[in-house]
């Protein structure tokens, strides 16, 4: 169960293989990769800068993983989130979940992303031809989170 906040890029293939080979009892590995889009609200994006709250970020992500583990029978999971200045096509986030069978891993991966989007203290600022702007939180993300209410 690993949580990492880093400026460096990550190798998804390598990380998923390591996870898979470390969990011979897992029959399913589900992963999500988020990347920087080249366009947002009709404007082209030159860079995206991610700010976070060191200390709280790590504890929020650990809490998200812990909550997922109480809801589903998971064998292992991984969250890597980048901070700093990124450009279009750069990877932002990786969430990977392993379980004995696919159903739990699919659900837990989506749950962890929905929680991360609304609970983990990251903020995105993008640079467009019109200038710099902070990205606003989306109501659709709050709606996605509500689906998981017990």
């Amino acid at each position: 169960m690993t949580v990492r906040i880093q400026t460096e890029d990550f190798d998804v293939g390598l990380l998923l293989n390591q996870l898979r080979l470390a969990n011979p009892g897992a029959g399913a590995l589900v992963s999500f990769v988020g990347q920087v889009r080249d366009i947002n609200d009709g404007d082209s994006i030159s860079t995206l800068t991610l700010e976070h709250y060191p200390g709280m970020t790590e504890s929020a992500l650990a809490a998200i993983k812990a909550e997922a583990s109480t809801r589903w029978d998971l064998m292992d999971s991984l969250i890597i989130h980048r901070v700093g200045t990124l450009k279009p096509l750069d990877q932002i986030v990786l969430v990977a979940v392993l379980s004995a069978h696919r159903g739990e891993a699919f659900k837990a991966c989506e749950f962890m992303m929905d929680y991360l989007k609304t609970q983990a203290p990251f903020w995105k600022k993008e640079i467009t031809p019109e200038g710099a702007r902070w990205i606003d939180a989306k109501l659709s993300d709050d709606a996605a989170l509500k689906r998981w209410n017990k």
């Binding site: 991610l50 200390g55 989130h81 992303m113 991360l116 989007k117 609304t118 939180a137």
Partner: peptide, 26 residues
């Protein structure tokens, strides 16, 4: 102290209080 709270939450001496906009990671 690194936990999201609502506005009714009580503050105590030596707390670390943070203010920020709704989050937009992922």
């Amino acid at each position: 102290n690194h936990n999201l709270v609502d506005d009714l939450a009580k503050i105590q001496a030596n707390d670390e209080v943070a203010f920020f906009p709704p989050v937009t990671g992922g």
